[in-house]
Simulated scan of single mutants.
Amino acid sequence: MKYILTGAVLLLSIGAAQAGEAHVCRSETQKVQKFIGLSDNTTFTCGENVKGNIPQLASQGWKIVQVTQQVESLGASPTSYYELVVQKP
């Protein structure tokens, strides 16, 4: 039993030591009437030090894990933006 517990602790510590970095990124807000959509030119801001479009983020080693479109307001002039979740292993 002691060896099983020790092995489990070692496996968990190896996974924690290899943990990567992840960020939630946001594009600029667009008016829905003039909505351009997602493209290679859409720029995302991911915290203070990570910024770029999808090809730039990929060339920096970021893996795109999730893409969602968010509605910011539904009033007289509705707005929307894209959100990415990126991570590095």
Rank of each mutant, 00 (worst) to 15 (best):
Thr42Ala: 03
Thr79Cys: 04
Glu21Asp: 14
Glu48Gln: 08
Glu28Asp: 14
Tyr3Ser: 14
Ser73Lys: 11
Thr68Ser: 04
Cys25Gly: 02
Ser73Gly: 10
Ile36Thr: 12
Ile36Lys: 05
Leu84Val: 00
Gly75Glu: 04
Asn41Glu: 09
His23Lys: 06
Gln87Cys: 10
Ala58His: 07
Lys88Pro: 07
Ile14Ala: 15
Ser39His: 01
Phe44Leu: 04
Lys88Phe: 06
Ser73Thr: 12
Ala19Ile: 05
Leu74Cys: 09
Tyr82Cys: 07
Thr6Ser: 12
Glu72Asn: 15
Gly52Phe: 02
Leu11His: 05
Gly37Ala: 03
Glu72His: 13
Thr79Met: 08
Val9Met: 01
Leu11Thr: 09
Gly37Thr: 01
Phe35Thr: 03
Leu12Met: 12
Ile54Asn: 03
Val71Ser: 14
Gln66Tyr: 05
Leu5Pro: 00
Glu72Phe: 10
Glu28Trp: 07
Ile36Phe: 05
Val32His: 01
Lys2Phe: 15
Thr68Val: 04
Phe44Gln: 01
Gln30Tyr: 06
Thr79Phe: 06
Val85Cys: 02
Ile36Ser: 12
Ile14Pro: 11
Val71Glu: 15
Ala58Val: 14
Ile64His: 00
Leu12Trp: 06
Cys25Glu: 00
Val85His: 07
Cys46Gln: 04
Ser73Trp: 04
Gln69Val: 01
Ser77Lys: 12
Val9Gly: 02
Gln33Met: 12
Ile54Val: 12
Val71Asn: 13
Gly75Tyr: 04
His23Ile: 01
Val65Gln: 03
Val67Gly: 03
Val85Met: 07
Leu5Met: 05
Gln56Val: 07
Tyr82Asn: 10
Lys31Phe: 14
Gln60Pro: 02
Val85Ala: 03
Ala8Gly: 11
Lys63Asn: 15
Asn53Tyr: 06
Lys31Tyr: 14
Ser39Glu: 05
Leu74Gly: 15
Thr42Leu: 01
Leu5Ala: 07
Val32Pro: 02
Lys2Gly: 15
Ile14Trp: 15
Lys63Gly: 10
Leu84Gly: 00
